[in-house]
Design a protein around this nucleic acid. Structure first.
Lengths: 109, 109
DNA sequence: TTTTAATACCTTGCAAGACAAAGTACCTAA
DNA sequence: TTAGGTACTTTGTCTTGCAAGGTATTAAAA
């Protein structure tokens, strides 16, 4: 049982997820599960099957790097860190996002 | 020759296109080519191969209807009109959009 | 009267990506 | 040694954006 509203939100989230990930990692390095929690807090819910491939793509593009770190409990964590290239991309995304907000406002009048 | 910036913008546009179409048609009925021009004016450039299937999908969902009208020059035009269901969906999208703007702001801090 | 150009709509095939679901691996405590 | 929690990864499906090519109508030029 899923509302229309959920579909709408899910659809809109697409394309901005990369921006969200870079935004989160720009503040503080993080591992996938903690990123999921932060997205949840911001009402930008995403699932594992979406996030993991996305992180790998961004890493392959040189926007992120990572290092392994021991966990207090459970298996080691893969901490992702934003790179210089990632920060440059984030700056571009800031402009792109602001432009899109303006465009929508124009269309809505 | 395409800049990174173009990719970023194209990526972000995805998922908001349906919102743009409904926004445009909420103001005034329009045919595909005129919708393309309005999107271009708002810097939300889209191509025919994206727009036509999208209009058909929205029509099949009952968000739009259409009627044929003679053109002053050339073949007849298919004017799309937003339906009551389409307006309800647009209202949902307004909330969804505003929430997303807020979420991004939260993430960017 | 054929050809050209402009306008308009539509379809096909490919590729990217979101997601559900299932799988692998590590660690601790009962 | 099994159960449960944490964490990362992969597979398969479905949707959708888009390039490219196609069809149809009209009017004006050659």
């Amino acid at each position: 049982m899923e509302s229309t509203s959920d579909n709408v939100r899910a659809q809109m989230r697409k394309g901005v997820l990369e921006y969200c990930i870079l935004s989160i990692l720009n503040k503080k390095e993080a591992y996938a599960s903690s990123i999921l929690e932060e997205l949840k807090r911001a009402n930008m819910l995403v699932v594992e099957g979406t996030l993991y491939p996305l992180l790998i793509r961004q890493k392959n593009q040189g926007l992120l790097s990572y290092r392994w770190e021991e966990s207090p409990q459970g298996p080691p964590r893969k901490y992702y860190v934003i790179t210089d290239k990632g920060r440059a991309q984030l700056a571009e995304m800031d402009s792109a996002w602001q432009e899109m907000v303006d465009s929508i406002e124009t269309l809505r009048k």
